[in-house]
Amino acid sequence: MTTNNNNSNIIQVVDLYKNFGKLEVLKGITTEIKVGEVVVVIGPSGSGKSTFLRCLNYLETPTSGDIIFNGEVINPKTNLNKLRQDMGMVFQRFNLFPHKKVIDNITLGPLKVRKQSKEEATEQALNLLEKVGLSDKANSYPDQLSGGQQQRVAIARALAMRPKVMLFDEPTSALDPEMIGEVLEVMKELAREGMTMVVVTHEMGFAKEVGDRVIFMDDGKIAEQNSPEELFSNPQNPRTRSFLSKII
């Protein structure tokens, strides 16, 4: 029985370490994500922010420490696929399945993993495509779409699993500048609908507009975390100040 397990926490991260060989990338991360919270993770490259995100759904296996999801400690041997069904992920490079049409990219998970019926999965996929503004692209192949369109399909694909949390790993970093807006719009809409989101990004505008909390990571640790207003206008840590002065 854990008495400190607050029910409003969907994810708890406890003393997370991750080494790649001799390289220590995460050096003791402890934090929690509340239901409905939008957490934006920022930091210089190499600070471990993507690794942190990828540890949350065990795409990287932590060297030590625990991820507690929905009150349950993740054990990669027993409940990993279940965890991943409930944690959608959007990648920097989209990672759509190039041999499948847009609609099939979206229905694949629900059909094969959630075992939904074809009708149900298709109807849901069409609704999601409408939501991300790509109803006319259902029968296109990914390589026929622009980067921004591909990323919106990737978001729809992740949402089709009806996840409890969405993880975004620098979702706009591989996009041409004119396409960043359309992806951020979809993400903002999701945030407004109450989706729990953890977003690694360099888009400070997004953090300010919809972020509930900003985590600044530096050298494998959480150097500072606060509400976006506080963190951006009144950073406490000198590393945060130095980082913000370079990017804003």
Binding site: N81, R84, R93, N95, R157
Partner: peptide, 24 residues
């Protein structure tokens, strides 16, 4: 990234191979 995308949807190794990796 193809394996990671499949895994992130909760697919097993067999499903990932069958639907994503081997067809490509």
């Amino acid at each position: 990234g193809q394996v990671e995308a499949a895994q992130s949807l909760g697919m097993t190794y067999t499903q990932t191979m069958k639907y994503i990796i081997l067809p490509q």
